[in-house]
Nucleic acid binder design. Structure first.
Length: 110
DNA sequence: GTAATGACCTTGG
DNA sequence: ACCAAGGCCATTA
C-alpha cells in the first residue's frame, strides 16, 4: 500500500492550523526525507481517497503558489477554501506566505 | 522487469 | 538575476 509515508503526510496536513499554510518540502523534511517533497505532493494526489478530508489547500509549494489547485474539484476550490479560512490569495499565491507559513519541524518539533 | 511521470526542491551555468 | 538540469521516492504503464 501507500504505507506510512502517506499516512504521516495526511497526519501532518491535518495538524496544520486553520489560516496557516505549509510547503511540501517542510512536510517531507519533517518526515525525514527532505528530498521526498514530490512524494508529499503525490500523497496529496490521493488525499481525496482518504476517509478523512485532508486540507490539502493548506499545502502549497515553496513559492507559496497554489500549484495543486488544478487537482481539486475545480481550479478555484483551493483558493476558495483558503480564503474561507482567512488566507488571502493573489494570483494563485498565498499573501504573506512567510508569515502564514507553518513549519511542522518548528511547531511540532520532536 | 524496466521506463516514464509527478500538487517539488536544490544546485549549476 | 534568469534559465536549465539533476535528484529523490512512490505509483503507474
Amino acid at each position: 500500500m501507500e504505507k506510512d509515508f502517506f499516512e504521516m503526510v495526511y497526519q501532518v496536513v491535518r495538524l496544520i492550523p486553520q489560516g496557516r499554510v505549509t510547503s511540501y518540502g517542510a512536510i517531507a523534511k519533517y518526515l525525514g526525507s527532505a528530498k521526498s517533497s514530490r512524494i508529499v505532493g503525490y500523497a496529496m494526489n490521493g488525499s481525496h481517497q482518504q476517509k478523512i478530508l485532508v486540507p490539502a489547500q493548506r499545502v502549497v509549494n515553496r513559492n507559496g503558489l497554489l500549484t495543486g489547485k488544478i487537482h481539486f474539484a475545480t481550479p478555484n476550490t483551493m483558493q476558495e477554501l483558503l480564503e474561507q479560512e482567512g488566507v488571502k490569495i493573489k494570483n494563485d499565491k498565498v499573501v504573506d506566505f512567510e508569515e502564514l507559513f507553518w513549519d511542522p519541524s518548528e511547531e511540532l518539533k520532536l
